[in-house]
Design a protein around this nucleic acid. Structure first.
Length: 164
DNA sequence: GCCAACGTTGGC
DNA sequence: GCCAACGTTGGC
């Protein structure tokens, strides 16, 4: 099952299968990470350097499923919620899902990500909403989900908007 | 600051 | 297992 299909399925499956089942899925998947910039900003992510940071604190099962589906080398957008409301940079998964020590219940986990590069021009939520080809983006459809899948098509469109 | 969306909790 | 109450997220 494709990541996107798995995500849209109700109820969502516990595991997201990739590769052999969904042949058209390329080896690398894309994601979107939301952060309120006054809590954790892109600048801070950049300063964390190649070591990256834990993407911890996720306490939502649908978001957890996204974290579990992430593979080493997957890339993602870094989105500033609340203030900014724009995609500002690109990050990469440098460690796959493992337990989140800040979760006493032991049910949730986290991945490590590092900053790759900033977008030439940040892509605002308003821009995304105004682009018909992006109307199905999780950012619009599942606005409260903090970790989201991004399709290859959406990834390319946002990148093209960032250079416009 | 307001409020809609939505996940979680807890009483029954 | 239902659902009302409550808390949180995040756009506006």
């Amino acid at each position: 099952m494709c990541v996107r299909e798995a995500f849209l399925a109700k109820p969502a499956p516990a595991r997201v299968e990739r590769g052999s089942i969904c042949l058209e899925t390329p080896p690398m998947a894309h994601w979107l990470y939301k952060s309120e910039p006054f809590k954790w900003s892109w600048d801070q992510q950049v300063k964390a350097g190649a070591k990256g940071t834990h993407w911890d604190g996720v306490r939502n099962h649908l978001a957890k499923q996204q974290l579990q589906a992430m593979k080493l080398g997957d890339t993602g957008f870094f989105y500033h919620s609340n203030e900014g409301k724009e995609i500002v940079g690109i990050v990469e998964v440098i460690r796959e899902f493992y337990p989140d020590p800040s979760d006493a219940t032991g049910k949730f986990g986290m991945v490590d990500i590092k900053a790759v590069k900033p977008l030439k021009n940040p892509v605002t939520l308003a821009t995304i909403k105004a682009e018909p080809r992006l109307e199905n983006m999780a950012l619009i459809k599942f606005s409260r989900l903090s970790v989201q899948p991004v399709t290859d098509e959406e990834w390319d469109i946002v990148l093209s908007l960032a250079q416009g």
